[in-house]
Design a protein around this nucleic acid. Structure first.
Lengths: 337, 337
DNA sequence: TTGAAAGCGCTACCAT
DNA sequence: ATGGTAGCGCTTTCAA
């Protein structure tokens, strides 16, 4: 097959009877071009099926129109958790609408700084980071090298990059207040990994609600999981053993709640009669558990969309820092509470 | 921060006391360079922390060093099915080792040819395609435009692109033979979507084994699902209703088998005493069902690795077509059969 | 083996 | 408002 060798801007300009500069202006900003010239160029583009050469453009603008999304978890976790699917969809569609390319990097840990090198020298215009653990100073280092960064979820206070986060404290508080209203008095919680901010925030909401109601906030009512379903099962077993008197469990996400539900059923504790269970996420999973799960709603899609918006603003104008956004949550009551 | 403006090849050449051409040769092929010159250039690169500019290189080589992976399913399906995680990992690590960039495109359907345009004009060197349905002529069209394509799983016979596939027919045959050896006589199957080759192949293996044993291959023993767990539940209900006499079920993947297991339990049919169940994939899920699932092992990682190998061979030398590879499968016997 | 030079296709700046 | 021109950083002839 003879390579059809795509038309260049030169061809377009020739066909439209204008200079290359004018043609370029039509394609980009569009300012300072006469209507006639614009029309001629647009026609030529259509007739020729012209598509700008990304590499050539990148070479001169020093932009790649590519955005990296780094998820700091294993493929198993990433592909196993519905939350990520939502965020990726939000990011993907928003980026596509802005004609940016999404480079998805799944990287459990940045061994040897390869990732940092890639992000800072290999030409992405900005970096989106998801599921950060405490030890990760990657965002700070990337930002220090002049590449805009927006986090999904907050990192430790010291980190100053932009972020988008659900209002986890509020969500957890809503969940636990609901449990208390239902008359529960011994409210346990299956929290997330101890080294994540999201875990601290949800725990804070849990404790706030309990304290406000004058209830016990004993340490032995708290057990950590890793957000996976299995870890929810394990944690529930521990809690049941340690505090057989518990009458409610607030779980830091839906998969762990599903695991807890299973263990409670096996232990002969009926839900919601004897024990109330609330999850977090309002993922599709929440509707298919038995019984359907009361859960805190958050929107991963919205989170993704907001992340892109903040990041692109910073990419377009490096003098502004991305800022941050806190997304509201609300409780969805189903039958597990 | 004053942009440090990365060192260019020019800088490297100057520092090494050679011409730009020589420096370039050292970085690439490496042929026809004296040991002295090479050493000098390599030192200069190390000292300067030089990293080639991708865009500049792409402009002249007309290569992007980027490979697209198109998964023709929704984010929900992609992120819900462990099979995809494995393939993506295989692809991701292999590509990274070859210093290629992975562009992940999740696209349920190619509405309006946007995807095709992207793949063919927006500069990826090759395309990997996963989870193809019958109606998809995308691979043929992309290939016709001169972009190498490798499929994960086969498309209909008429498609001539390269592919990597598990030996689904063999796997299904092994599963059903095993069921027959266990003394089962009424073997039902929950198949995949009717419009996929993988479904036809697994059904063929199922029928071959049954026929060889002189058993019933009635149509009412076959029910289709969509590879999702819920669809497995639904299909199992239908089968149980239609053929209460069934004593075994071969499921086209593990999630559907998990769904079937659940329905059987609810229906009071004990597994494996009254009904044997076999899945397909040998995913992590298979070990955590109750009872643990006998299943056909395939390796998504290997599949991903093989896909990349075939594709890159074709990318490196456009005159060879990618060819294809059939990966063996084997049965893993656990307690559900 | 090597350096010089010619572009790759584009944007941005310059007079005009 | 517009066309000409100068690179962006690199690979790849081509002579030497």
């Amino acid at each position: 097959m003879p390579v059809p060798s795509r038309p260049t801007l030169e061809d377009v300009a020739a066909r439209a009877g204008v200079g290359r500069g004018t043609a370029s202006r039509v394609i980009n900003g569009g300012a300072r071009v006469s209507a006639r010239a614009r029309q001629a160029v647009e026609d030529a583009i259509a007739e020729l099926g012209y598509v700008p050469n990304r590499a050539a453009r990148a070479l001169v603008t020093r932009r790649t129109d590519a955005i990296a999304l780094v998820i700091a978890e294993s493929e198993e976790r990433v592909f196993g958790e519905p939350f990520f699917a939502g965020v990726v969809r939000g990011i993907g569609t928003t980026l596509a609408a802005r004609d940016k390319q999404l480079i998805l990097l799944i990287a459990p840990a940045d061994r040897g700084g390869h990732l940092e090198d890639y992000l800072t020298r290999q030409h992405v215009d900005g970096v989106l980071l998801l599921s950060l653990h405490d030890d990760a100073d990657l965002p700070a280092r990337v930002q220090a090298r002049g590449v805009p960064v927006v986090l999904g979820g907050r990192a430790t206070e010291s980190i100053t990059t932009g972020y988008v986060d659900a209002d986890n404290t509020q969500g957890a508080r809503l969940a636990v207040e609901h449990l208390i209203e239902r008359g529960r008095r011994v409210v346990a919680t299956i929290a997330g990994p101890a080294d994540m901010q999201v875990t601290r925030h949800r725990l804070a909401g849990y404790r706030t609600a309990l304290t406000a109601a004058g209830l016990d906030v004993a340490d032995d009512l708290v057990e950590h999981g890793d957000f996976g379903r299995d870890s929810g099962e394990a944690a529930m077993r521990v809690l049941l053993e340690r505090r057989p008197d518990l009458d409610a469990v607030f779980c830091a996400n839906d998969p762990m709640a599903a695991g807890a539900l299973k263990v409670l059923r096996e232990a002969g504790r009926s839900v919601p009669e004897e024990v109330s269970v609330v999850g977090f996420d309002d993922s599709a999973l929440a509707e298919s558990t038995h019984p359907p799960l009361t859960t805190v709603h958050q929107s991963p899609e919205e989170m993704g969309v907001a992340m892109v918006e903040l990041l692109l603003a910073a990419v377009d104008d490096p003098s502004v820092d991305p800022g941050s956004r806190l997304l509201p949550t609300h409780l969805v009551v189903r039958e597990s509470s």
